Simulated scan of single mutants.
Amino acid sequence: MMFTFGIVLTLQSGLGISPFDALLVGLHRTIGLTIGSWEVILGALMLLLNALLLQRHPAYLGLLTALMIGVCIDLWVVILDGWVQPETLAGQLICFTLGLIVNGFGIATYLQANFAPVSFDGTMLAVTELTGFNVSISRAFIFIVLVILAFIFNGPIGIGTLLITFLSGVTINFFHPYVEKMKRLIELG
């Protein structure tokens, strides 16, 4: 829920969103269906692509992850639509920054759950394994492809897209030790 709340806050800021989310919104604007529906569709396609690239069985639990993310995105879009629409640059920056922070905390929490990864992460690892590139280069390559596709489908690309590309990892890394510590405390009872 937190992860997707952050996505929708960045969307509502109007400053641009992550390359993958920009593609989802672009497909929504161009073809129809909800943003969350496109999350599920592209998630399923990427799971199949990952399986083909790595010549392995698809990570079927990833479909559940994509479904949960898709439903939550659509839920937050409905809840926040009309309620969070910053009209000043200061409001946009606050909304975007809050979205980036909440998203980073949500992803750090999600990663600690050690559940089925999102399909994007699987594709990043597949590209890394097939090319021998490190994860950063593989992620950058995929982001470039996604930005091009988002541009073609009229996705919301902006300065926020660039900021998320460079700052999301930093935000996740910032929250990771705190979330890990919370997990340990919960496990101890």
Rank of each mutant, 00 (worst) to 15 (best):
M1D: 04
M2W: 15
M2K: 10
F3W: 13
T4V: 04
T4D: 05
T4H: 09
T4N: 06
F5V: 06
G14E: 02
G14V: 04
L15I: 09
G16W: 06
S18T: 06
L24E: 05
V25K: 13
R29G: 14
I31G: 10
E39P: 03
I41A: 11
L45I: 14
L47D: 06
L49R: 12
N50H: 08
A51F: 11
L54C: 06
P58I: 05
Y60Q: 00
L64M: 08
L67F: 15
I69V: 15
G70Y: 11
L75D: 01
W76Y: 08
W76L: 04
V78F: 10
I79H: 04
W83K: 11
W83N: 06
Q85A: 15
Q85F: 08
C95N: 00
T97K: 00
T97D: 01
V102C: 03
N103D: 11
T109N: 02
Y110K: 00
Y110V: 03
L111Q: 09
Q112Y: 03
F115R: 01
F115M: 00
V118R: 03
L125M: 07
I137S: 14
I137R: 15
F141M: 08
F141A: 10
F141E: 05
I148W: 12
L149V: 05
F151C: 04
I152N: 05
G155S: 12
I157E: 07
I159H: 03
I159F: 04
T161R: 12
T161Y: 12
T161I: 11
L163Y: 04
I164S: 02
T165E: 06
F166W: 11
L167F: 14
S168Y: 11
T171D: 07
N173D: 15
F174D: 05
F175G: 01
F175T: 00
Y178H: 01
V179F: 14
E180Y: 01
M182N: 04
K183G: 02
L185M: 14
I186A: 05
